[in-house]
């Protein structure tokens, strides 16, 4: 089985953590306004991304990850380095 893309992995985590439907998780979807996350959810999401992609996401960076696309781009950028 081919390895899942970054997009798929990010999407899976969001669906699991926030209990939303996969169709809602579009690149433009905002975690708080569109996906119903609260402040505790966002902390837990960042931890799950860190765990999945094996990288620390500093707090000042985490604050800027407002949409699904922000996370995908950030992970791609970090992995490209």
């Amino acid at each position: 089985m081919p390895e899942k893309s970054i997009e798929e992995k990010v999407k899976d985590i969001i669906v699991e953590q926030l209990g939303v439907n996969a169709e809602q998780v579009t690149p433009n979807a905002r975690f708080i306004e569109d996906l119903g996350a609260d402040s505790l959810d966002t902390v837990e999401l960042v931890m799950a991304f860190e765990e999945e992609f094996g990288a620390e996401i500093p707090d000042e960076q985490a604050e800027k990850l407002l949409t699904v696309g922000d996370v995908i781009n950030y992970v791609k950028e970090k992995q490209g380095e």
């Binding site: 505790l40 902390v43 837990e44 931890m47 860190e50 765990e51 620390e56």
Partner: peptide, 10 residues
């Protein structure tokens, strides 16, 4: 410590 869940206490 960075892996403690924000939901642990609640």
């Amino acid at each position: 410590p960075s892996r403690l869940s924000p939901f642990m206490i609640p």
